[in-house]
Design a protein around this nucleic acid. Structure first.
Lengths: 129, 129
DNA sequence: TTTATTACCTACTAAATTAGTATATATTCA
DNA sequence: TGAATATATACTAATTTAGTAGGTAATAAA
């Protein structure tokens, strides 16, 4: 069980932006400071923009800025935007669709709730050094 | 973020065995009842045996039996045996080795602790229908 | 109006992982 | 001895991950 580097890079980039909030920064600067491939980070920042946690301006003097105060952005949001919904496992057994819950779906459901609770409770401002 | 089908199959097989505890069962029976490829399940049962949660007897009239009371086996044990250690992400940044913790490692550490707590708190007997 | 700088978009690719299969061996009971 | 079981290892197809490549679009400054 593992999250992807997308989530890792996303958290780093967002924390970096949180440190200069409400100033903006370019992808190039973030990539260099956080040691992430710039081209790859471009894609991730696009997802984060579509996800509504950053805003961008094009062109010369353009860049990225957090959409709102770091206190109001959570690790859960960032990770779900980049990695997809947090759902540890989907049981595909024929009995799991309806009220007959299989044993493993009980585990995955409990766990999913806990993970979300934990991650949505971590605000971006608490990650700044 | 997702667990593998190994964990899913493992939970199902172990719950199945819990239902007949302290009787034994063959892999063939379990595979059929839980709709899992027998050959694949053989491998997984081998891991679970090495992991110390089931015991096996070879030969005719052989089979698998839980190593101990279902109350004393947890979902966390089963999943870690099959999927490896629960560690949502390992930050490879150069500053994460020592006391300088990067933002994302804070998230992964908190999360790892929570996930383990949740999974080791789910006992096998609570999953039986 | 041109040029440099930035974001934005899509297609491609190498490597790793997952989820198995295939094949053979070892052990035990009847 | 033969049938039924577990055990072990090597192979493979499909999927996912983690990027790269190569371009387009918008904007500010010269």
């Amino acid at each position: 069980m593992r999250f992807s580097t997308k989530a890792e890079y996303g958290l780093k980039a967002m924390t970096n932006l949180a440190q200069c909030y409400p100033e903006q920064k370019t992808i190039g600067e973030i990539a260099k400071e956080e040691n992430i491939s710039q081209k790859y980070l471009e894609r991730l920042m696009g997802l984060l923009r579509n996800g509504g946690v950053v805003q961008s301006t094009k062109g010369k003097q353009g860049g990225y800025v957090l959409d709102r105060d770091p206190k109001k952005i959570t690790a859960g949001e960032i990770i779900e935007i980049l990695d997809g919904e947090i759902a540890p496992m989907r049981c595909v057994g024929k009995f799991c669709a309806s009220e007959h819950k299989c044993p493993s779906s009980i585990v995955w459901n409990k766990l999913g709730v806990q993970i979300k609770k934990t991650l949505y409770d971590i605000k971006l401002n608490t990650l700044i050094k």
